[in-house]
């Protein structure tokens, strides 16, 4: 939730996000199958909308994602699974994308 609020605020202040990288349990934030109680925010849905509306590049770490069942069509085919759980606004890739983002950006901000 903190990362989401931080992202919204920095965009409001005119900064850009080069990439959001989800690692470890963070990949659950991209689970399109998650349902929240009606009176609570659906954080995955909120992130999905933010990512889509600002055309932010969003990546789930491949080893974190597939071991937690966060799967897109490509990984579903590769691992012979019959369902997909990753929001289509995000992609799955390796840790190199985190390092690349650190090198390409002015700042790297981590949230645990």
């Amino acid at each position: 939730m903190t990362a989401y609020q931080f992202a919204r605020n920095l965009l409001d202040q005119g900064h850009d996000i080069y990439r959001v990288f989800f690692y470890g349990d963070g990949v659950f934030t991209l689970n399109a199958l998650a349902v929240s109680p009606q009176d609570e925010i659906n954080l995955p849905q909120a992130w999905h909308q933010l990512i889509e509306s600002h055309e932010i590049e969003s990546i789930a770490c491949v080893s974190s994602a597939i071991s937690r069942g966060i799967i897109n069509p490509r990984e579903a085919e590769r691992h012979e699974k019959d369902s997909v759980s990753l929001f289509e606004s995000s992609d799955i890739a390796g840790l190199g994308q985190l390092v690349d983002a650190a090198l390409q950006s002015d700042r790297l901000i981590n949230f645990g």
Binding site: F6, N9, Q13, H15, R107, L108, I109, N110, F111, G112
Partner: peptide
């Protein structure tokens, strides 16, 4: 949060 963002800009790195 506004100041949180500013602080990450003011400092050259953030250690979480």
């Amino acid at each position: 949060y506004h100041k949180f963002v500013e602080l990450t800009v003011q400092h050259s790195k953030t250690v979480s």
